[in-house]
């Protein structure tokens, strides 16, 4: 089975599970995990295909969440439109900031993107009039289509997996096009890409911006679903969580990342006794993955399939 087919089947299975699972706690948990899946898919494009790192992705999720919430609360703009505007604004922001930043490589790029995430976090904390500071922001209207309101965990669960499907679809279309080919070339052999007509810098910036769009869109949905956001949901630790999910899942495997992201995003809620120690568990998982499946779950599956 091709990776895209396998991924669509997996998403369909998650969708169908919504008919079986009755427990709102689990539905809620998996919905939040699905939002993380969208962020990690965007990160996959950047990290796994273009080979550029971002330690500030939670910042983009935050931008999407805050901008869309503020638009809806302050300016009474329709929630859907708010999410769309916020996502577009965030990707334009990423385009502008990515232009100089993506001239950097390796550690320098990691540091610069980390700083971007931190700056967004600091703004969210300190622009108290707009964001409510560390106490957070609330009062977002519920998402609705006509008279149909997404007012239960179940309704949102179905909806968010359909959104995941759309983002997966876009990812696969990109990855399997000549654009995706160029991204892989940039990842491995930048000079070869350049020599065969790939505008390397432009492509990096475009994919950075697109992955910020993924993140911001997930952030917007998160804000309207929970009805409450605060800066701590978008801090550096969250950015690192996303990176860990992408790495353990396999940076260039959308399928592997999907599974691992759902697992890693849900585990802290199931193993509540670990609460404060979760970062340690997360770190351990990364180390174990790096030792036993250095290319993540996706790489592991490809390797197994090559053997049998």
């Amino acid at each position: 089975m091709k990776e895209n087919t396998a991924t669509y089947v997996l998403i369909a299975l998650f969708l169908l599970s919504g008919f079986i699972i009755k427990n709102p706690f689990i539905l809620n948990m998996v919905s939040i995990a699905a939002l993380a899946v969208i962020v990690v898919m965007g990160l996959n494009l950047l990290l796994g295909y273009a080979g550029q790192v971002s330690l500030g992705h939670a910042g983009f999720v935050g931008l999407g969440a805050y901008i869309s919430s503020i638009l809806a609360i302050r300016f009474n703009i329709n929630p859907w439109l708010s999410i769309l505007i916020a996502s577009l604004l965030t990707s334009v922001f990423a385009l502008i900031i990515g232009y100089p930043t993506l001239k950097l490589k390796g550690h320098y790029l990691a540091m610069a993107t980390l700083a971007i995430g931190e700056i967004i976090y600091i703004f969210a904390n300190n622009l108290v009039d707009l964001t409510g500071g560390h106490q957070g922001l609330t009062g977002m209207p519920m998402l609705s289509v006509g008279s149909f309101v997404f007012d239960s965990e179940k309704k949102f669960f179905f909806f968010v997996w359909i959104v995941v499907f759309f983002f997966a679809f876009i990812s696969f279309r990109i990855v399997n096009s000549h654009f995706g080919r160029a991204l892989k070339a940039i990842h491995e052999k930048e000079l070869a890409a350049l020599s065969f007509g790939v505008n390397v810098h432009l492509y990096k910036v475009v994919i950075f911006s697109l992955s910020a769009f993924y993140a911001a869109f997930a952030g917007g949905l998160y804000a309207f679903y929970l009805g409450f956001i605060s800066p701590s949901s978008f801090d550096l630790l969250k950015s690192i969580d996303y990176i860990v999910m992408a790495f353990v899942g396999g940076i260039d495997s959308i399928f592997g990342s999907l599974i691992i992201t759902v697992v890693l995003a849900s585990l802290p809620n199931i193993m509540t006794f670990l609460q404060d120690y979760w970062p340690i568990v997360n770190g351990l998982l990364l180390v174990i993955a790096a030792m036993f499946m250095p290319k993540g779950l996706g790489g592991f599956i490809k390797w197994k399939r090559a053997i049998f």
Binding site: R181, K184, A185, E188, K189, L191, S195, F196, G197
Partner: peptide, 25 residues
Amino acid sequence: SRTFQNIQLIDALTVKENIALGLHS
């Protein structure tokens, strides 16, 4: 168009896709 002294093929791409990269522009 050029080739490289130390081979610059993309390991993640098949031969077909590597050659197709030459048509990118």
